[in-house]
Amino acid sequence: MMERITKTDSRVIYAILLVSMIIPLLKPLGLPLTTPAETQALYDLIESIPSGTPIAISMDCSAAGYDELAPGTIAVLTHAARKGLKVIGISVIDAGPSLLQKSIEASELGQKEQGIDYVNLGFVAGGETAMASIARDIKGMYPVDFTGKSTSNMPVLNGVNTLQDVELLICVATGTPGVPEWIRQVGDPLKVPIATVVIAGLVADYAPYMQSKQLVGMVPGLRGAAGYEGLVGKLGRGTAGIDAQSVGHVVILALVVVGNIAYFATKGRGKGKGGKA
């Protein structure tokens, strides 16, 4: 029996995971959900910003990571729209502007007026160097927005010349360039509060920035997104997916435990044959 478990075809494991995640998507289990403290911190901060204040969102997100970050980004944009904040979208990753546009359209910000309540400025090449330049001269780096409209007299950018003029910078990050680079070029030198909507795989890397207060808030993966959706009161795909994620985790844990028991139970038998991981 144990021998058979160690030799299980990986496709069987994929099938088990697939079925275990589809069921809660079709029939939600309503498992309890808590909001992470760092997500609550971002919500409270946005809640405290007066209406009409500009904030920036940097969509430094690849297409491959968008599915994980979309629910959190949409919830944050919806919150900003309800608060009446001016949202300035920027990006240092080429796929960023299209993904930001998609998120804006899916959120309540999409019902507001482009150029007046929000703007998607688009992509600037150069990674960290581009961040440093955007920080010092937004209109110089973005003479036109994502749709090709001139930014020189755009109402949403009134009084916004550098990133010091925004109350908060939210980095939607899947990797590099991302949060550490924004902290290096904007957060610490210009004293601009930075928050992030980030993939779960980077949470451990970015936790020290929360501890040092270089990050003022974080929406970590699907869990953070579900928490933020709850705070905003508009349940979406983050909340719908969290049951599936919890079940998926339980299945993975069970598979790890069963796999290890089977491995150690059959360890001696594999000696001399090169073993089997």
């Binding site: 968008y66 994980e68 979309a70 795989g201 699907l222 985790h249």
Partner: peptide, 10 residues
């Protein structure tokens, strides 16, 4: 691992 699951759920 959590992130990969989230992507798959998406």
């Amino acid at each position: 691992a959590t992130g990969r699951i989230s992507l798959f759920i998406g």
